[in-house]
Design a protein around this nucleic acid. Structure first.
Lengths: 99, 99
DNA sequence: TTTGAGTGTAAGCGATGGCATACAATTCAG
DNA sequence: CTGAATTGTATGCCATCGCTTACACTCAAA
């Protein structure tokens, strides 16, 4: 249930849209509550990649959506975790970026 | 563990910084892996509110951090959930914005 | 102390975001 | 079907982002 991963601006957009509709708000109403323009809500819901992080977080807060961390791999917080592991992890992450 | 809430750009910044250090990377190394400037990483870690959403998500992905939803209140997805409840929720959220 | 890596800050520039306004397209009640 | 509400798109302006370059600050190792 809480396992929906947020990977892209489009994910955020879909999330916002779904929640907005679930609350019975239209774009204009949400916009005024968040303090942005209706156009901005519209574009963000469509996955605008360059959207302002702070405004997005405010929008989520307004919709009572709480983001949290779903740790994928943990790190031995003990001693030096240097190169080898990390590069593999990061390469995998990079590939996942734009398939 | 997975309950750390993400509310503000500063939260994102702290998250990125902690994870970067846990992975033994410096700002420059992370920047080049993400494909942004070192300066940008620096500012985001300090909580830059206007940061580019897409770049932030790419940074999180590079660090293998997965965001997910922690639903606060659910909505009777049945019929119209209109004004009363919502406004209270939203007002509270607004107040939380800039105290 | 000195040296160096890592980090924080500044100035200027090109690119882009967010805005208002206006107008199509779509959806939905009547 | 008609008309209103909601959503999508276009244009232009101004503010701000992200970049490069450059330099100061901190701190740990030599």
């Amino acid at each position: 249930m809480a396992g929906i991963p947020i990977r892209s601006p489009a994910d955020i957009g879909a999330l916002i849209r779904d929640r907005r509709k679930a609350l019975g708000l239209d774009q204009a109403a949400l916009a005024s509550k968040v303090g942005v323009s209706r156009l901005w809500i519209n574009q963000v819901e469509q996955g605008k990649p360059g959207a302002n992080l702070g405004l997005v977080l405010r929008t989520l807060a307004t919709l009572d959506i709480a983001l949290s961390i779903a740790p994928q791999k943990d790190v031995k917080s003990d001693d030096a975790v240097t190169a080898p592991d990390i590069d593999a992890v990061i390469d995998a992450a990079r590939e996942r970026r734009e398939p």
